[in-house]
């Protein structure tokens, strides 16, 4: 007899493979999307680079960041945007339609964690161009910035820190999305809130130190944009500080726990109020 934990992990893993296999099959019915996404990623990237160049016209640095450093931030932003298109957007924008049509009942009656189901049910391949472009930009920026730019990657152990911080960024981003999407249990029309999130996270295109102090505080403590791009970028550039790293991991843990708690609460409210 297998132990229950291992059996659970196997079941979840198999479910995930199945989820993603079926959703990829559904998405590939629209091949034109691939071309559109590709052009859109290239266009957005070119535009962002253009604006970044305009911002650097006034001096060699932006909020104390060099050109290649700012490129790393932009690369991370593009990467996260791709992740959003791949996983967050297709899944979490669906919660509201589950609530509207009542199919959330089916999700809640599956013998599998409902937050897992709602967050991982589908995957869209259309964020992959952005992920590739983001990785490419980061690599190029690090190579261009010379040996000291990639200081964060000199030893294998040091690679772990940026990776951990990137993971933290993904977790924070996921939690923000999930919390906003879960609010649709109470306010059915709130799904626009995820759009608001997408538009305000645009702030992550630039290092957080480029903003005036008030906005910097806002982007660190209220809407943790700083932890999404700036902190991992600093680690990649070898400028990571222990304080920020610990802070980032802590914020990620808090956000995830918060999303979990909110979902518990949302379920209870859904199941005690719906008719």
């Amino acid at each position: 007899m297998e132990r229950p934990l291992i059996r659970d992990i196997r079941c979840y893993w198999r479910s995930l493979r199945c989820f993603w296999g079926t959703s990829l099959a559904a998405e590939l019915e629209y091949p034109l999307n691939a071309a559109i996404e590709f052009v859109s990623v290239l266009g957005n990237l070119a535009g962002s680079l253009f604006v970044l160049q305009l911002l650097f016209a006034g001096g060699p640095s932006l909020g104390g960041w060099s050109w290649s450093g700012a490129l790393v931030v932009l690369g991370l932003y593009t990467l996260l945007d791709g992740f959003t298109t791949c996983v967050l957007q297709p899944n979490l924008s669906r919660i509201v339609s589950h609530v509207q049509t009542g199919t959330l009942d089916y999700v809640l009656l599956k013998p599998i964690d409902s937050q897992f189901w709602l967050s991982a049910r589908t995957v869209s391949p259309w964020g992959l161009p952005a992920i590739a472009a983001g990785l490419g930009l980061i690599g190029w920026a690090l190579a261009q910035g010379g040996p000291e730019a990639a200081a964060g990657l000199r030893s294998p152990g040091a690679v772990l820190l940026p990776l951990a911080l990137l993971l933290a960024a993904l977790v924070i981003l996921y939690s923000l999305w999930f919390v906003l999407a879960a609010l649709s249990i109470w306010f059915v029309k709130v799904w626009n809130a995820t759009e608001v999130l997408r538009y305000t996270l645009v702030a992550g295109r630039y290092p957080v130190s480029a903003y005036p102090p008030a906005l910097r505080l806002l982007f660190t403590f209220v809407l943790p944009v700083a932890f999404l791009t700036t902190v991992p970028a600093e680690a990649l550039l070898g400028r990571g500080s222990a304080l920020w790293a610990i802070g980032s991991l802590l914020v990620a843990a808090l956000c995830l726990a918060g999303s979990r708690l909110l979902w518990r609460f949302a379920q209870r409210s859904y199941t005690s109020a719906s008719s």
């Binding site: 479910s15 199945c18 079926t22 099959a25 599956k110 013998p111 189901w117």
Partner: peptide, 12 residues
């Protein structure tokens, strides 16, 4: 059939 495979996975 695809949805059924998903259900099979979820119910183990």
């Amino acid at each position: 059939l695809d949805s059924l495979r998903v259900n099979a996975a979820v119910y183990g």
